[in-house]
């Protein structure tokens, strides 16, 4: 009994310490952000390696989520005689919820873990120490560009995810299930609001992008300098980021849903 209590206490204090360390790390990064703009090349390189290389996965994911949404909602909408609203239903679900959330989850799995293991490996192979000794601050040179690149990439990827999703819903809804194409698009136009829906979706994916990127660089930067430490950093990034994304999503949906 006391042992399991003790174990609980240990894991709680570890969590608290991690969280505290994480906040300290975030505060330490802040002053570097303005200076990072002076070297856009470093950021665009990272946008390429994090964002562009996640592109295929995101497009694939978006397309199939869109098709499944159309298939799933069709029978319900049919029952109420509302199949024309298929496009509106699918695109609103995509823009407000599925786009930001699934994109961020895929990004954490594809890019967040990659950043964590890359930075962790740089730690383990003394590359970060070598930079320090060359009087180059690894936070400025390695960490901040990856962080900014992630924050920029996730909303863009979410937009692409939604576009592909709507396309998937269109193909299934209009070409397979026989929804009228004009009705499909005009309902989307009526229902999806630029500020309310697209804006809140973008805001969510910005928050998710910050969490996924911060977690990746943080776990990598503080990874134990050995093989086990690096793989743990990658795993923790995916797990913790996913939990955060789902939690934040709940909170943000509550905040941004009209009439809740």
């Amino acid at each position: 009994m006391t042992r399991s209590l003790q174990a609980c206490w240990v894991s709680f204090s570890q969590f608290a310490a991690t969280f505290g360390g994480f906040q300290m790390f975030t505060l330490r990064l802040l002053p570097y952000l303005p200076r990072a703009i002076l070297r856009p090349r470093l950021i665009t390189e990272q946008i390429y390696s994090l964002g562009a290389l996640s592109l295929v996965l995101i497009m694939f994911g978006g397309f199939f989520v869109g098709t499944v949404l159309a298939l799933q909602s069709y029978s319900t909408l049919l029952e109420f005689g509302q199949v024309d609203a298929l496009g509106a239903f699918a695109s609103e679900a995509l823009v407000r919820e599925l786009g930001p959330v699934v994109t961020a989850l895929l990004f954490a799995g594809r890019a967040g873990s990659a950043v964590a293991s890359e930075v962790g490996l740089m730690r383990a192979t003394n590359q970060l120490a070598a930079m320090e000794l060359m009087a180059v601050d690894p936070l400025q040179r390695v960490i901040v560009p990856r962080f900014i690149a992630g924050v920029v990439s996730v909303p863009l990827l979410a937009a692409i995810f939604c576009t592909m999703g709507v396309l998937g819903a269109y193909l299934v809804g209009v070409h397979q299930l026989g929804v009228d194409a004009g009705a499909f698009w005009s309902h989307i136009q009526d229902r999806v609001d630029l500020f309310d829906d697209v804006g809140s979706g973008l805001f969510k994916s910005f928050v998710f992008g910050v969490s996924a990127s911060l977690m990746g660089v943080y776990e990598g930067y503080y990874a134990a300098p050995n093989a086990g430490g690096v793989s743990r950093a990658a795993t923790r990034t995916v797990v913790i980021t996913s939990v955060w994304i789902l939690l934040f999503d709940f909170v943000l949906t509550g905040m941004t849903m009209p009439g809740v």
Binding site: M122, N126, Q127, A129, A130, M134, A135, V136, R141
Partner: peptide, 25 residues
């Protein structure tokens, strides 16, 4: 400082590794 394994930056080639301090400073 020369590290035991060289501690080269693995995403840069030999030329860019040697050029690294010059480009930074």
């Amino acid at each position: 400082v020369l590290f035991q394994d060289g501690a080269l930056l693995t995403d840069l080639n030999v030329f860019e590794n040697v050029a690294f301090p010059l480009r930074e400073h």
